[in-house]
Each structure stands twice: as structure tokens, then as C-alpha cells.
């Protein structure tokens, strides 16, 4: 049991990264109707930026914040120059995001190389709590993610901006009739989703080595958790991420750990067959007219 608890915290730290990506995917989809496949590469870029800064001697947590801001800027640029023009045709936006992810991957390979990058863990302590060894860095990753999830959740459900965001998701025209600048909210969710991806990348490299191809693996998991929870539903992405984390932990403990990715996708497929709208129910994307 102790080993399982240890495994669970390890898996939760991995799930945290997936949840951060999944929340971005689901937020952007809910308002803009675009499944942004480049979100995985945004994460990878965030990880690479963190790596470069830490190698240059910058403190990890400072590097993390810089990565968040830089990837946020990347998201802003992508929205302004690309996605803004496909809002009425989300499928075009989706295809474009696949193109963007290939480009980003190649840019990173050309400017750096294909070799995997890692940093020495910024926090190396191991805490022993009730007989369970907890790797501090992993607990920190889980804690940071929990804070981000809580802030996002309360921001959306309680704040004036969150209510306006939900109104825009429900009915863009009527939201505009309330005086809500819907296009600015679209930009906002792209930037916010990108910042989360940048954070995910920084947290990921604190745990594992990453390569320029990490994004394409992580996006599948991010997409899986947002579908499991219900695409467009932020709470759903969190629940989906936790379920995958639990499946991972069980697989690592009682199954064949090397099959972990397959298990999560099998769980996704089973859930989607039984509940096509996802566990918490997604949105159909923005309402047209």
C-alpha cells in the first residue's frame, strides 16, 4: 500500500502536466471551437526555454515564469496571425494547428538538436510522511497544478470575467449584445491556454528529460483527458486527468508499466463509447449565429 501511495503521487505529478494541457485544449475549444494541436509543442517549447535558462544559471522558478510568459506570447502571436482568421471555420483552424505543431517541432530541432534535454532537479529533497517516501519536486508539481486548477475554476465560476466567458461560450451573439468583447475573450483563452502549456513544459522538465518530440506524445494525452471529461468543460479536463493519473498508478503498480499509454487510451475509448459527451458533459463548441 505504501508503495502504491508513492506510485500515486508520482502518477499525479505526471497527471498534473496532462491536466494543464487538457485545460488549455478544453478552454480554447469551448470558446473558439478549435482543437489546438500545437498545444503540445507549446509545452515542449516551454520546457526547452526552461532548460536553456537553467543551463545559463537562472533559478528554476524564475525560468518557469519566463517560460510561461514566453509561451503566452507565442500563443498571442499564433492567435493574432493565424487562428483569428479561422474562427468561422474551426476545422481549418484545427488543420492549421497541426501544421503549426510540425513547424514548431522543426524550428526547435534546427535551433537546438534532437537530443533529449534534462536539468538537475531544482528540489532534491525526499519527504517521509507516515512511511511513504515522497519526492518533494513531484509534490511541488502537484501543488502548483492544484493552485492553478483552483484559481482557474473559481475564476470561471465566480468572477465577472468568468461569467462573461461562460456567456460567450454559450452564445456568442447574445454575449456581444451584453457588451462583452467576445473576440478579446478568444484572444484571452488562447493566451491563458498557452501560459498553462508553458507552465506544463517547465514542470515536466523538472521531472523528466524532454525531446523536441515530447509535444506530440503529450498532446494525445491532453486530448484524451479533455475528451474523457467532456471537451469544453474545464472541470472535466481535471477529472479526466485524475482518472488517467489513477490508471497510470494502478498500471505501474499492478500491471505492466510499459503499457501505461495504451491503458489510458483504452480508458478513453471505453468512456467515450459509454458516454460520448464525456463524463461531465462537454459543449458542442461555440454556437453558430
Amino acid at each position: 500500500m505504501e508503495i502504491f501511495l508513492q506510485q500515486l503521487i508520482n502518477s499525479l505529478s505526471v497527471a498534473s502536466v496532462t491536466i494543464l494541457i487538457g485545460m488549455g485544449i478544453t478552454l480554447i475549444f469551448g470558446l473558439a471551437g478549435i482543437v489546438n494541436f500545437a498545444q503540445g509543442e507549446f509545452l515542449m517549447v516551454g520546457g526547452m526555454i526552461t532548460w536553456a535558462l537553467v543551463m545559463a544559471g537562472v533559478n528554476f522558478f524564475v525560468a518557469m515564469v519566463v517560460a510561461m510568459l514566453a509561451v503566452g506570447l507565442l500563443g498571442l502571436t499564433a492567435e493574432r496571425t493565424l487562428f483569428r482568421f479561422t474562427l468561422t471555420r474551426p476545422m481549418n483552424g484545427f488543420i492549421m494547428s497541426i501544421g503549426l505543431s510540425v513547424i514548431l517541432q522543426n524550428v526547435v530541432i534546427r535551433t537546438l538538436n534532437e537530443v533529449q534535454k534534462s536539468i538537475t532537479p531544482p528540489v532534491t529533497a525526499v519527504w517521509t510522511v507516515g512511511g511513504v517516501d515522497i519526492i518533494a519536486m513531484r509534490a511541488i508539481v502537484v501543488a502548483i497544478t492544484a493552485v492553478v486548477v483552483a484559481v482557474t475554476y473559481f475564476g470561471i465560476s465566480r468572477s465577472r470575467y468568468g461569467v462573461a466567458l461562460r456567456a460567450s461560450v454559450a452564445d456568442q451573439d447574445t454575449a456581444a449584445l451584453m457588451g462583452i468583447p467576445v473576440k478579446r475573450y478568444v484572444t484571452g483563452v488562447f493566451v491563458y491556454g498557452s501560459v498553462l502549456a508553458g507552465l506544463g513544459g517547465a514542470l515536466m522538465i523538472a521531472l523528466f528529460p524532454i525531446t523536441p518530440f515530447t509535444g506530440s506524445v503529450i498532446i494525445i494525452r491532453g486530448f484524451a483527458v479533455s475528451l474523457i471529461g467532456g471537451l469544453g468543460n474545464v472541470g472535466g479536463a481535471v477529472v479526466g486527468g485524475l482518472i488517467l493519473g489513477l490508471v497510470d498508478a494502478l498500471a505501474a503498480q499492478y500491471g505492466f508499466p510499459q503499457w501505461t499509454d495504451a491503458y489510458s487510451l483504452i480508458v478513453m475509448i471505453v468512456i467515450l463509447i459509454l458516454r460520448p459527451q464525456g463524463l461531465l458533459g462537454g459543449t458542442m463548441g461555440p454556437r453558430a449565429t
Binding site: V163, R166, A167, A170, D171, D173, A175, L177
Partner: peptide
């Protein structure tokens, strides 16, 4: 075009 998932008061505030 009421926001059906929001409360009456949230609708008014919007």
C-alpha cells in the same frame, strides 16, 4: 436568448 445555465441574477448582471 436567456443564458439558461446561469441564474436570473447572473443574467441581469451580464
Amino acid at each position: 436568448r436567456i443564458f439558461v445555465d446561469m441564474t436570473v441574477q447572473e443574467n441581469l448582471r451580464l
